[in-house]
Amino acid sequence: MVQLSERPGTKKITNLQDKFLYELGGIFDAENRFLEAQQLMWQYSQHPELKSLIEAHIRETEQQIRNIEQVFSTLKQQPQRVTCDAAAGLVSDGQKLVLLSSDNPKIVDLVLAGEQAKVEQLEIITYRGLIKGAEQLGQNEIVQLLQQNLQQEEQTAQKIEQLKPRLLEEARSTGGKSGANRSR
């Protein structure tokens, strides 16, 4: 069990707004982590379509961070990152997979797409929860900002899912086969 002493600056959650602010701080941390990771992904990617998708999503992520900052401002709060362990874990796992597959650029691209898909799902479920929370708090302006972020995440997830089969086929056709890869 995590101890609150492991989270300096974290206060007890006693109402819906506290819960909302904690979760908002978590996605704020996640988006910042994912922005840094996407910048690295862009450097590692060799596939033009994937590289273009990552580049476009970097710009979207920058806007999403500004939207979150606007949500904090609307609530008269300073933007504050709350460590998102899920985001940190996804970034760490992705980095390990890239390093382990670095000898085959086609596999690296497949790894990057797979990790991006995982990130999108975390973001989608988080934004859906935040939207519900903002609705409960009667914060329509905040709902709109969060819905913009959600729509971008859903569109990116869809584009990644459409690209993944092509990346898999390219990885297979260029010697990316091994006993473990054939079943995927």
Rank of each mutant, 00 (worst) to 15 (best):
S178E: 00
D103H: 10
T83Q: 13
A86I: 07
Y44N: 15
L110V: 08
P105Q: 10
L75C: 08
I160D: 02
P8R: 00
A37C: 11
S102T: 05
K177V: 08
D103Y: 08
T126A: 10
I124W: 05
V91T: 02
E36K: 12
S183R: 14
L112S: 06
S183P: 00
I54D: 01
E115M: 09
P48W: 00
C84M: 08
Q151T: 15
P165W: 04
Q77M: 05
R184S: 12
A113E: 00
Q38I: 03
V2F: 12
W42M: 14
A37R: 05
L90G: 13
V71G: 06
L97P: 01
G25Y: 04
D103E: 15
I107M: 09
A37W: 04
V143L: 13
L21Y: 08
S102L: 09
Q144T: 15
G94C: 02
H47A: 00
T174S: 15
G89Y: 07
Y127G: 11
E169Q: 15
Q151F: 10
T83W: 10
G138D: 05
L24N: 05
Q3P: 02
Q155A: 14
T61P: 04
F28T: 13
L168I: 01
K177H: 08
T156W: 00
Y44Q: 14
I65L: 11
